[in-house]
Amino acid sequence: MITCMSKEMELHAKRLGELGNLTRLSIFRVLVKAGRKGVAVGDVQKILDIPGSTLSHHISRMVNAGLVEQRRESRTLYCLPLMDAVKETADFLLSECCSGNIVPK
């Protein structure tokens, strides 16, 4: 049992929690496939065939978790995946891989 949650653990738990939702994971995969150029919100909506309000809710949660950023160009809003954040979380999970250091019960 974890008795002390560090800020770092809280951040990674939040990121993993957001990606643990099927809709948000689907959105994030669309963004990752597009790369650093991002995807217009309207295009994400068409690709995944979800209502705009639902998409907005899920994107907002990922923005708040630091997984996605948004950029406006004229009248178009683009979403971009923050791959450094995903890499940080993956590195956090793997940081003590195979170290043999386990906490006794």
Rank of each mutant, 00 (worst) to 15 (best):
R24I: 06
K105M: 07
L77A: 06
V44P: 08
A40Q: 12
E69Q: 08
L11Y: 08
N21G: 08
G20H: 02
G42L: 08
L67M: 05
I2Y: 03
P51S: 14
E18G: 02
K14P: 00
G20I: 00
K105G: 11
T89Y: 01
T89N: 03
T54L: 14
M9D: 07
L82V: 11
M62N: 07
R29F: 08
T3P: 00
T54K: 14
S56Y: 13
T23L: 13
F92E: 04
L82F: 02
L48M: 14
R75Y: 10
V32S: 09
R15A: 05
V32Q: 09
E88T: 02
V39E: 12
V68E: 04
V39G: 09
F92Y: 15
T89P: 01
P81L: 05
K105Q: 09
T54G: 13
R75N: 12
M1E: 01
C98S: 10
C98Y: 06
E10G: 08
P51M: 11
V44Q: 05
G38T: 10
G66S: 07
D49G: 09
L80A: 01
R71V: 15
M9E: 14
P51T: 10
L31W: 07
R15W: 07
K33N: 14
R36I: 02
A90P: 00
G100C: 00
L93Q: 03
G17P: 09
A90F: 09
